[in-house]
Amino acid sequence: MRLPPARGVALSLLLLTAILFPLLVDNPYLVSVVITAYVTAIAVYGLDVMLGYTGELSLAQGGFFGIGGYSAGILMATYEVSFWIALPAAVVMTAALGYVIGLAALRTRGDYFAIFTLAVGVMIVIIIERWEGVTGGTDGLIGIPPPSSIGPLRFDSLTAQYYLVLFFLVLTIYVVWSLVNSLVGRTFVAVRNSEELARAVGIDAGKTHQLSFVISAALAGLGGALYAVFLGYIGPAMGGVQMTFMMLVYLMIGGVASLAGPLVGTLLVTGLMQFLQAFAEYQMMALGPILVVVIIFFPKGLAGLAKLLPERWRR
């Protein structure tokens, strides 16, 4: 699978912009907003693997994000485990939990699956809130240290953390891209398009759903762990249902089942919310109409619009 040259150039420019961003922008607040958007986008990519490519809406994504965050946070703050061990451990824990939940949740499909996973998401928050001895309850968990340095590489500055997060974001996009453009991705899409036909051509639909759900959870875990470490503090809200719905909004606005969608949507909406912050709780009111407009007029999101426009011009 080779990229067409024009896309290759565009991608290189984008990556270059992302690399130069903290050097050109002398505003730590803005940099930290972008870091938050990047880590959330990683989880949104996970949401898209399940929703966009496999066709099932998992509303436990915020919960998995929280589990990734709390796993890394507890390991690092309470047990003083190194970030470089805590991060993969958090991803593995979230994926394993995703596997177990998937065994039950994937007995359902469609709306039932969405409702089931929503309930799972709610349960995860309740457990985080009540299991005070481990999670710090509603007070949250403080004192998560920054990643320890590897040789000369130190991660206590904002710029260094930006690059660390950017690295994992690029890795995530690469993983999703290579999955989607492989026989594995084709299998996901086949199950999404018609589970019946997929089974008739010898595809184990159950296993395919399970695999997609685990990958989806693992990415949420990765995003959550980075989020916890970057903020140095976590509270139960990060695993909440509102987090899930924000991720869903990012994905819908950015574009489902497109490689750029999750990142574009997350950056744009996060930016917009910052812009509207002066309006406090009313900022959500602006988001509603925007979402409605996007869903009605650009059902494939902004990434879909970008694909559509050149076709219109050619005519």
């Binding site: 993983v175 290579s178 999955l179 492989s182 026989l183 594995v184 695999l211």
Partner: peptide, 9 residues
Amino acid sequence: SNVLDAILR
């Protein structure tokens, strides 16, 4: 081919 094959191409 599995997930690892896909990621490692």
